[in-house]
Write a protein that binds this DNA or RNA. Structure first.
Lengths: 349, 349
DNA sequence: GTTAGCACTCAACAAAAGGGAGTGCTAACA
DNA sequence: TGTTAGCACTCCCTTTTGTTGAGTGCTAAC
């Protein structure tokens, strides 16, 4: 069967109505509130066809129709009008502009971004911090904290900072630390993590004078700092409790599952790293129902977007909501925030 | 009316039974399952008395009784047998011992501690990181990150680290930074935040040569670093979704309220800083129902404990659960974790 | 191809009925 | 005087039974 223009309009009307009400929508409703002038009986025939095509479904006989996952998929792929949402975007942009001006640290910014997103959309939001293992080392600072304890501060492009405290056997003199600092910075600055290869490491150790052991430990510490960050990728979430707004998700067992994912954050990694690197339409990815890689979210839709701060500094923003979420609004919001992150980063450069 | 031994026993039996089942408990149940050999009729008379005394209440006529807040209060204050829970404590101790061995950073430890606590008790847990504003500055490190951007690393007793990046007007030479570092460290190290008064600040600025502005900014940065930590006190939570285990809390509006508090964390500050400094019985504090300072938790009980790592480095551990929580188990678990934190800290010293 | 009409289905709500757990009270018992 | 058996009563909970109304599919007429 073919999906003609009229069927599309009807499907669209069903999705939009269901988006607002959360109730199955009947033929009479469509007949009354859509611009095509048709009687309910005609609509019924068309709906019957749409059902046969697997785009909508009845929860039970004598109920209205609701969209299926396939229905949503069609809608998202071919029917999204990314028309003027300017008003909303402006507002969101201003809110977050305002917030960004008042913060310095990446962490704070991302936290706030997540909050703004959740507040703005009434869905749950998540943001992964940019992964910086592809990034340039900007600065290493070694200093003594206690007798035999050193503090290594590692700063990379984008001003992400990592601290590690570690112990050394030998008791270093103040000037040793200074020269080690110099050595490390002259040799390592500007390099990506991958570029710090065995050759460089050997060279470093040669030049380190008697302090081979210390250099080794420092490099370990640097590696550790990066690895540990890679392991438990920083993820900031907000608005998980928004899911209670949607009756179809708020019965306690479903809600529990979803919120648990947000609380533990581990599983979110799957969502947030899935698309890293791949280039879709502006990096925006929509998972509907069972399409999501996280089983607990099978009753939700997830929209993610990859932001790129340059130099391979990538992270992901995501929104989780009911399948009947306002996809246009969500996509628009994500784009705004992506732009925001861009601007922010350019300011810092 | 007087609360004789028998009434106490009956109240105890009611509380324990209700703890397990979550259902109002009737006279027949007590008569059957408690060690006092009495008929249900006698129990009924006693229960009638207990109700008159405001310790138990009927949700409706012809239902069993459930404890009131006052009933719980009495139980917690006078009837808690902190008897041998050794089995459970051992287990908890081992679990967390194991976990602690594998971590270095305070943050990780506290996160894990929260997780272990939640897993062990099946309630929600929270831990505030030790506040260090009463603490000694151990070390300040100033270094250049970009042309006009400096990185200040502040380390305090207990090896808590704070980073701040800030801009300066003048372009500092390398040796200026070095001497500033020296200046800052010789003058500030070993002082508590409170001890850095105007006198010291003036003295610092005098000695700073031409770099008064920089010193000012550094001090601002230091203050900011501490203030900002104070503002959004680090709080680690776990097991918020455990509240879904308890039917009396898991209807969606209540659950939402409670989980929201855990998500936003701001309000948890009230719970976690309430008792700081005050010395109760080993610093353990029990809030039952309306007693809690957080309105959204009026249907819960909250148990908090203050841990002290020495040098005024204090933080708080807390458990949130239904009013019928197993207070003994919770108190015991909190004590174990407090001990654990102690040990861990001593290791680090 | 569209529409009016009609019989049919079924969730949702409400009222009615029965069961049962638990109570308070009274009277008898030790 | 304290304890207990007995009994009437209350009221929640569950099941049953209608009743309503939204929505459908089908058919026949336009």
């Amino acid at each position: 069967m073919e999906l003609d223009e009229r069927k599309k309009k009807i499907l669209n009307a069903i999705i939009r109505n269901y988006q607002e009400t959360g109730e199955p929508v009947g033929s009479r409703t469509i007949s009354k509130y859509s611009d095509l002038q048709l009687s309910s009986a005609t609509i019924r025939n068309e709906m019957s066809d749409l059902e046969e095509m697997g785009l909508i479904v009845q929860p039970h006989t004598s109920a209205g129709r609701i969209p299926t996952d396939r229905g949503y998929r069609l809608y998202v792929d071919h029917m999204l009008e990314t028309t003027d949402r300017e008003a909303g975007r402006q507002e969101l942009a201003q809110t977050s502009d305002f917030l960004i001006d008042r913060m310095d640290r990446m962490e704070q910014v991302l936290k706030q971004m997540a909050k703004v997103l959740a507040l703005n959309t009434n869905y749950a939001s998540m943001i992964s911090a940019p992964r910086y293992n592809r990034n340039k080392l900007k600065f290493i600072q070694l200093s003594r904290v206690e007798e035999r304890k050193l503090l290594a501060v590692v700063v990379v492009e984008g001003n992400l900072i990592k601290n590690t405290i570690f112990e050394v056997e030998e008791q270093l003199k103040e000037e040793d630390i200074l020269s080690l600092n110099l050595l490390l910075n002259t040799n390592l600055n500007g390099l990506t993590i991958e570029e710090i290869n065995l050759g460089i490491i050997t060279k470093l150790k040669e030049q380190a004078g008697g302090h081979v052991e210390v250099v080794g430990k420092v490099l370990d510490a640097v590696a550790e700092a990066i690895r540990s960050d890679d392991e438990d990728l920083q993820i900031y979430t907000s608005g998980a409790t928004n899911i209670f707004r949607y009756p179809e998700l708020s019965d306690s067992s479903k809600a529990r599952e979803i919120i648990q994912v947000f609380e533990e954050k581990k599983q979110l990694t799957n969502l947030l790293t899935d698309q890293l690197g791949a280039e879709g339409q502006q990096g925006i990815q929509v998972y509907i129902g069972n399409e999501t890689p996280v089983q607990s979210m099978k009753d939700c839709s997830v929209v993610t977007a990859t932001y790129d701060l340059g130099d391979g500094l990538q992270g992901t923003i995501g929104i989780v909501g009911p399948k009947r979420m306002d996809y246009e609004k969500v996509v628009s919001a994500l784009q705004t925030v992506m732009g925001q992150l861009d601007t922010m980063f350019k300011k810092e450069e």
